[in-house]
Amino acid sequence: MTQTLLRIDASARHENSTTRALADRVAAKLQPSKTLTRDLSKETIPQLDAGWLHAAFTADESRTEEQRARLALSEELIDEVRAADTLLISTPIYNFAAPASLKAWMDMVARAGITFRYTETGPEGLLTGKRAILVIASGGTEVDSAIDFATPWLRHMLGFIGITDVQVVRSDLQSLDADASQARAEQDLARVA
């Protein structure tokens, strides 16, 4: 049983959202003691800009109050990931990639020296001991195909910050064959424990 679940929904849709409906089913199977939620369609995660980057790369003891304020949301998002045993990320594939809101969330979470560090042998993720379940839907893009730039990116970024136990629940190619898409989702859901 998952103790703390961090659920991140990236679909712009609320009604008739495949990813939200599947994420509801995954969450019900996991039966978490506590759920933290981020609906990226209802809140704006800002894009990185020069001021944010300057604040992030200023040593903590040298940061101004303004710089600390610029990083406050990033700190909050990272604390949520740290608190979670399992991340449940539900996202559609828009134009072959993840929605910009999910990229903005990841940009706030992937921070050098905090969620990953550089070593002599390359980057090392610091948020280990967690797992992630990706719920991914698409109209015409096959998950993990050559034109899917969302799923491999998410796996890579999660691994980059230390989360290497990643499972995918997919409902892809819905516009081409809705029944087959639903069947793939049911197979993947059956493997969620």
Rank of each mutant, 00 (worst) to 15 (best):
A97M: 07
V135C: 12
L126H: 01
A72Y: 08
L102I: 04
V135A: 05
L73I: 07
T128S: 12
P92T: 05
Y94G: 07
E76G: 11
E66W: 03
M108T: 00
A110G: 08
P99T: 08
L126N: 00
S74E: 07
T121N: 06
A110C: 13
A112V: 08
Y118Q: 14
A112C: 08
T121A: 15
R68G: 09
S90L: 05
T119L: 05
A104H: 07
M108K: 12
V81Y: 00
V135G: 05
A97H: 10
I136Q: 06
E75Q: 14
S90T: 08
Y118A: 15
A72Q: 07
I136G: 04
M108Q: 15
I136E: 02
V81Q: 01
L77Y: 03
D79L: 04
M106K: 09
E120F: 02
A84L: 15
P123V: 06
E80Y: 11
R68C: 09
Q67D: 09
L73R: 04
M108G: 02
F116E: 06
F116N: 06
A110D: 06
S101E: 05
N95R: 01
P92H: 04
P99M: 12
W105E: 00
A72V: 06
F96A: 01
D85L: 15
A97Y: 03
E75I: 06
A84T: 15
G129S: 12
E80P: 02
I114W: 07
M106P: 03
E66D: 12
A84E: 11
F96D: 03
R131Y: 04
A132E: 10
Y94C: 09
I114K: 06
Q67Y: 10
D79S: 07
V135T: 09
A110T: 14
T121E: 14
A100G: 12
R82Q: 15
F96H: 08
G113C: 13
I78H: 02
L71G: 10
L77A: 08
W105M: 03
V109W: 00
G125N: 06
G122Q: 14
P92L: 04
R111F: 13
L73D: 00
G122E: 12
R117W: 09
E75L: 05
A83D: 12
L88F: 10
T91Y: 08
V135Q: 05
S101D: 02
P92F: 03
I89K: 02
R117Q: 15
A112G: 02
I89S: 01
E120K: 08
E66P: 01
V109R: 03
Y94T: 09
A83L: 14
A112M: 12
G113L: 14
E124T: 04
M108C: 11
D85V: 13
A69C: 01
A83R: 13
W105R: 00
R70Y: 01
P99L: 11
T119M: 10
D107L: 04
E76T: 15
T91Q: 10
E76D: 14
L102E: 03
R82P: 06
R82E: 14
G122N: 13
Q67G: 09
G122T: 15
F116M: 11
S101I: 10
L102C: 08
D107A: 01
L134D: 01
E75P: 03
F96K: 04
K103D: 05
L134I: 11
P99H: 07
G125W: 10
P99N: 12
P123D: 08
K130T: 01
A69H: 03
E124S: 07
M106G: 09
G113Y: 13
